[in-house]
Nucleic acid binder design. Sequence first.
RNA 1: CAUUUCAGUCACGCCG
Length: 369
Amino acid sequence: VSVANTLVSMYAKCGSLDNALSVFYDIYEPNVVSWTTLIVAYVHLKLCESAILFFSQMLLEGVLPNIITFLSIISACASQEKLLNGMHIHAQVVACGFELDVSIGNALISLYGKYKNLENAKMIFDKMPTRDKVSWNSLIASYAQLGHSKEALKLLRDMREGGMSLDRVTLVSVLEACAIELDLDEGKQVHAHICGEWADLDSILGSALISMYAKCGSLQDSEAVFNKVHDRSVVFWTSMISAYVQHEQSHQSIQIFEQMKLEGTIPDDLALYTALSACFGQNGLDRGKWMHAGIVGSREKIEALVSNALLSMYSKCGSIRDAKNVFKRLTKKSVVTWTTMITACAQSGQPNQALRFFAQMQLDGVPPN
RNA sequence: CAUUUCAGUCACGCCG
């Protein structure tokens, strides 16, 4: 069984769910590790519904979940919206007597954070018999992501007073909090702390610093960070592209985008989205068309996010005609897609066309929000 | 043999 489990895990990590599944189904009596491995595979592919289904199936077959199973299933629940699943799992954790485990507590903190339920997150935290760095990080991240940055920064202070050392995860969350608060001073202090603690920045901390500085209005600092990091991920590049967009520097932004491609980093949807949003102003339309052509030439299908970005780009650049052309060729149109078109027409003196789109949208089965 | 926290992002409107 162990050998088969390892195989399942290996196939899953290579992205071959089919192979993983067929090995799993050939296991005579799958044990708790087999099931957990499968659940994790689905969670990593964001197929959380299925992960939860496998969990139920496992229970039906009389296999008892252990702590690791619960950790996996809690993270499955955290990445989907259904509150009920999460509450249900929490109850089961308690019933199995696992609720005092540190890792379980950590996962639950994060779960309630994702559910925007900070009271419960804090309650779990307070009730934990022992806390580790992850406990603090989870709670701080929850506060930071929900925009409660003051509390996040306060927790940081408590954490340090309690003698906990900070790690990269802590700092990323704190930088996010600084960005929301537009607290440049605190952000710089965190940056100084980072420089004192590690010889070089990695691309995750780098991205967080770039966007913190950009949001706090200090583009020069973003640039300085950008130049210091050499192991650049797509996210890292995108942060810099976005920083220039926020400061309305279309040209610089596109230049970074081009440099990224030259250095061999393949842009993902969000990178394309951001680069397209950099096409505005004087040469905006030309840059946008050029980019559009590049996108069409380099990928099979265009994702929703990217096509929406194309629509906004064309309408921002004043070419409703091009926007309509893109729009016509889309197979899936969301409310956002329709609203982009409606707004484009409305703002360019074509109110009747806007109303026509509005009517068509409803005929298409998309309800207005 | 499997496991918990972290970075770039969406249209419109409202408030700051």
